[in-house]
């Protein structure tokens, strides 16, 4: 039963991903991307990663995709992609090549995957159930011990991103003074 649910989910993810690719309307493909992200969150739930699934929803669909939609609306990008993809020769061959890439890799994974779940996975699950320690506690413990360096550096990354986003999106008048009250985005 669980497997059936999983494969339905697999199909949904694939369909949404194709939707991102083939939709010629930007808003629609953004919505399809939200679909992919939600489906991935469910996938994480199946893999017992509740916290990651939760963050996936909050950060990706809640923050990043809203930002995307906001910018699409702000810039009023109604015009769809003009020429259908299959008419562009060079891109067609690029696409064919990357499809070959995918099938080769998929086949290789099929052939090479070491069969069987490692004992670690089963043990792990059993221990999580037994000890009653929520996953969040484990993750946060790791974050401030083993992965403390990336954790600290992330804060600097966010600072850089804030400065960068402000400096690129701010409007200046001719003298280089920033315009604080926007009358319109012409």
């Amino acid at each position: 039963m669980a497997l059936v649910i999983y494969y339905v989910l697999f199909g949904i993810t694939v369909l949404f991903a194709l939707g991102v690719l083939f939709n010629r309307n930007t808003v629609r493909s953004a919505i399809c991307l939200v679909g992919v992200m939600a489906a991935l969150a469910v996938n994480y739930l199946i893999m017992r990663q509740e916290f990651v699934a939760f963050i996936q929803i909050v950060v990706y669909t809640g923050a990043i995709m809203v930002l995307f939609l906001f910018v699409i609306m702000l810039l009023n990008l109604r015009e769809p992609e003009v020429m259908p993809w299959y008419l562009r020769k060079a891109r067609f061959w690029g696409g064919a090549l990357s499809l070959v890439f995918f099938f080769t890799l998929a086949l290789a994974v099929q052939v090479w995957t070491v069969s069987g779940v490692t004992p670690g996975a089963i043990e792990n699950e059993a221990f999580i159930k037994e000890s009653g320690t929520p996953e969040v506690i484990l993750l946060s413990t790791l974050m401030i011990t083993k992965y403390v360096a990336p954790f600290i550096l992330t804060s600097i990354l966010l600072l850089v991103a804030v400065i960068g986003a402000i400096v690129m999106a701010k409007r200046y008048d001719e003298d280089g003074q920033e315009i604080i009250s926007e009358e319109e985005v012409s």
């Binding site: 950060v59 923050a63 910018v71 966010l158 991103a161 804030v162 960068g164 986003a165 402000i166 999106a169």
Partner: peptide, 11 residues
């Protein structure tokens, strides 16, 4: 990182 990149990119 994706969120930071998205912020700068959209700007």
């Amino acid at each position: 990182v994706a969120a930071a990149e998205a912020g700068v990119g959209l700007a």
